[in-house]
């Protein structure tokens, strides 16, 4: 019976670790919700920062982050899905396949600040794009690429082999089998991966610090070669570097909440999409 007591204690400890996850998550979300909600207003989302960022809203940061996300999707999703198709459908072993796999895994582990350094050295300086939306998008796309590849490949591998055999037996070429049967069946999974990648790109700060982000811009970006403001960088700057950072806490809470909601809504959509796909899946 003594053993029972010890085991009971063990289970309590395990539940505590799970409880800690929920507690931290709840604390961060609730706290920002309570503190940040009063700052949110129509004006907050639709106006520029004013008076040395002590008043006004986050419009340019919101727009900048929107552009960064859109650009990242446009580049990383086609590239990533293409790579996943090759990895799962065409590649038949060999050294290059192994090299690509190692490369994707290594890329996934590269610290975000290193992406920032690379973007500065390559896109900003060597390619002469300057600190710009385009440099930021290219840097973020490279960061999001392994996320898309992994998710898309997993989705493609989950498509039963019987579908492929069925298509081949009817005389389909590999590409016909892929785009008429395999890709449609894998679409929900691929979509989930793409959404996660965008969510990730939206929240990143270090990669855009030296490549795209501006402390303040008086107008919205007009060309891909303009500097942009971005939500995460804006939050960082307001919280630590702006002149009267202790006076603008309410704006910071508002910004943090906006960023959190933006990013987490992407995670939530991805989660729901996955759950729905699993429920509807019939093979």
């Amino acid at each position: 019976m003594r053993r029972r007591h010890w085991e009971g204690l063990g289970y309590v400890l395990l539940s505590l670790s799970a409880g800690a996850v929920l507690l931290v998550l709840g604390a961060v979300v609730l706290f920002l919700l309570v503190q940040g909600a009063p700052a949110l207003s129509w004006e907050f989302f639709t106006s520029f920062p004013r008076r040395g960022m002590t008043q006004g809203g986050i419009l340019p940061a919101l727009v900048g982050t929107g552009y960064l996300m859109a650009g990242t999707v446009v580049i990383s999703v086609p590239l990533g899905v293409g790579a996943a198709v090759w990895l799962s459908e065409y590649a038949r072993g060999g050294r290059w396949l192994r090299a690509v796999r190692v490369g994707v895994n290594a890329l996934a582990g590269v610290p975000s600040i290193v992406f920032g350094l690379f973007g500065l050295a390559f896109f900003v300086k060597a390619m002469g794009l300057g600190v710009s939306l385009l440099s930021g998008v290219l840097t973020l796309s490279l960061l999001a690429l392994p996320v898309v590849i992994r998710a898309a490949e997993e989705a493609l591998r989950a498509v039963p082999e019987e579908f492929r055999e069925g298509a081949y037996a009817l005389g389909a070429t590999p590409w016909q089998a892929i785009h008429t049967v395999v890709l449609p069946a894998a679409l929900p999974g691929i979509l989930t991966g793409a959404i996660l990648a965008v969510g990730r790109a939206a929240g990143e700060t270090a990669p855009i610090m030296f490549t795209a982000a501006a402390y303040y811009t008086p107008r919205l970006p007009r060309s891909p070669l303009d500097e942009v403001m971005a939500l995460p960088y804006h939050l960082y700057v307001m919280a630590t570097e702006s002149t009267f950072f202790w006076k603008t806490r309410h704006l910071q809470y508002g910004t943090a909440l906006a960023l959190l909601v933006l990013v987490l809504s992407f995670y939530l959509i991805a989660g729901l999409l996955r759950a729905r796909a699993r429920r509807r899946k019939r093979w």
């Binding site: 579908f163 298509a167 037996a169 009817l170």
Partner: peptide, 25 residues
Amino acid sequence: GMVFQKPNPFPKSIFDNVAYGPRIH
């Protein structure tokens, strides 16, 4: 043509399943 051990219709409509072969050809 070939028919497999486990029925393996594609995740498409009945019509599209049968029309699949003619279409790709």
